[in-house]
Amino acid sequence: MRNQGPEMEVVHLLRAVTVELGLHSARFASRNGMHPTDVRALIALMDASRADQEMTAGRLGAVLGLNSAGTTALVDRLERAGHVRRVRGKADRRKVAIEVTESAVELGWDHFGPLIGRAVELLRVYDERETAAIRGFLEGVREAAKECD
């Protein structure tokens, strides 16, 4: 039998959180007539925007693990639904960037905002050192997930 110490309890809890977050995201997708990949795309686009990085279709496809045809279909579907728009690149006007529309951001906040708010409130009880430890753990798990494929 594998180690069942406190570390494994945390790993199992992280797995349970991951499952619940996936179900929460799936409910959002279902309620809004989206595929789960559509939601992942919107998250990737919002993350890029927050980091002040342009997201081309090629880069979006790479982030999501989609081929060119799949990415085009995804962007077309999101654009038809009014969730994204194609715009000229800021640095290179020949490139086309994909941006999330304000209505899509509002739709996301309506669903995910309460959960985000509760998570922020939970984090406020931790001091700076504890928050840094939580951040370090989560970043480490994310990197491990990328590497252990």
Rank of each mutant, 00 (worst) to 15 (best):
M55C: 12
V19S: 11
A132I: 00
G117R: 06
N67G: 10
E99T: 06
R94F: 09
D149P: 09
R129K: 11
V120M: 11
E130P: 11
V10S: 11
V63C: 15
L21I: 06
E99R: 08
R31Y: 05
P6Y: 08
V96E: 08
L42Q: 10
A29W: 12
R50L: 05
M1L: 07
A133G: 01
E20Y: 04
D76C: 01
L115A: 13
G5H: 06
Q4L: 07
I43A: 06
P114Y: 15
R2E: 08
R15T: 08
L21T: 05
D76Y: 08
D127V: 01
D52A: 13
S49I: 02
V19T: 11
L13E: 11
H83G: 02
D76S: 07
A29I: 01
R94Y: 09
R40M: 15
D149K: 09
G61H: 04
D47H: 03
V17T: 05
D47W: 06
D92I: 00
S25N: 08
Y126W: 15
P36V: 02
H35M: 07
R85A: 14
G117I: 06
K95A: 08
I134E: 00
V75L: 08
A133K: 10
R118M: 11
E20P: 09
S68V: 07
T131V: 06
Y126C: 03
V17W: 07
G89N: 05
A29M: 14
G58A: 00
K146G: 14
Q53A: 15
G140S: 05
R142C: 09
E79K: 01
D110R: 08
T71E: 03
D76L: 03
A16I: 03
R40N: 14
N32M: 02
P36A: 09
H83T: 01
T72F: 04
S49W: 02
A81R: 11
P36S: 12
D92S: 06
A145C: 07
C148T: 12
E128W: 01
V84S: 02
R124S: 13
R15Q: 10
L78H: 02
R129H: 05
R118T: 14
